[in-house]
Design a protein around this nucleic acid. Structure first.
Length: 168
DNA sequence: AGGCTAACCTATTCAAATA
DNA sequence: TATTTGAATAGGTTAGCCT
């Protein structure tokens, strides 16, 4: 990291997480679960993670990609027979299954927030290495660091954020 | 009751592995 | 090189905690 002083604009120096390579067996389980519930709750994702021996965040990403690409609207013929009268609304099947519980909301301590904010000011786009280090430092899973930084932006500028604090 | 914001979502793009 | 697909980003929605 000798040459990587705080660059002013782009921080491309940050490595992405390595691509996960799912095995055939893992994919079989994932796809099977997806066909049953394309929006798994936290408990389901945790169970899946344990079952196929991967991280819950990888499963979250996999479901996101799957939903975006393999349009889950085309129901598997397994269990859509009963609700065949869903009159083809534009709504992507909101009703066929109520949402499962999400992960418990984590509350960050002032110290944790301070650490996150400081790291964010130094680098708003941390790579996998920085995120893992940060996560270890404040004692939360890496996936929490990622979403926190890149999505919710933590408007540290005590000033009133202009509309949309995430427009960097 | 309302504000703040973590968790979750879609849409889109980047990019690594593979055919 | 084109395709496939995991990872990342931007921005919107849902819902839990606190005042």
């Amino acid at each position: 990291m000798a040459e990587d002083t705080y660059s002013h604009k782009m921080v491309t120096a940050n490595r992405r997480r390595c691509r996960t390579k799912f095995t055939e067996d893992q994919l079989k389980i994932l796809i099977n679960t997806f066909n049953q519930k394309p929006y798994p709750g936290y408990a389901t994702k945790q169970k899946l993670a344990l079952e196929i021996n991967t991280e819950e965040s990888r499963i979250q990403i996999w479901f996101q990609n799957r939903r975006a690409r393999h349009g889950f609207q085309k129901r598997p013929e397994a269990e859509t027979l009963e609700s065949s009268q869903s009159q083809g609304q534009d709504q992507p099947g909101v009703e066929f299954q109520s949402r499962e519980a999400r992960r418990c909301r984590t509350t960050y301590s002032a110290t944790q927030l301070h650490t996150l904010i400081e790291a964010f000011m130094k680098n708003p786009y941390p790579g996998i290495d920085s995120r893992e280090e940060l996560a270890k430092e404040i004692g939360v899973p890496e996936s929490r660091v990622q979403t926190e930084d890149t999505q919710n932006g933590t408007n540290f500028t005590s000033d009133s954020h202009f509309s949309g604090a995430r427009t960097w």
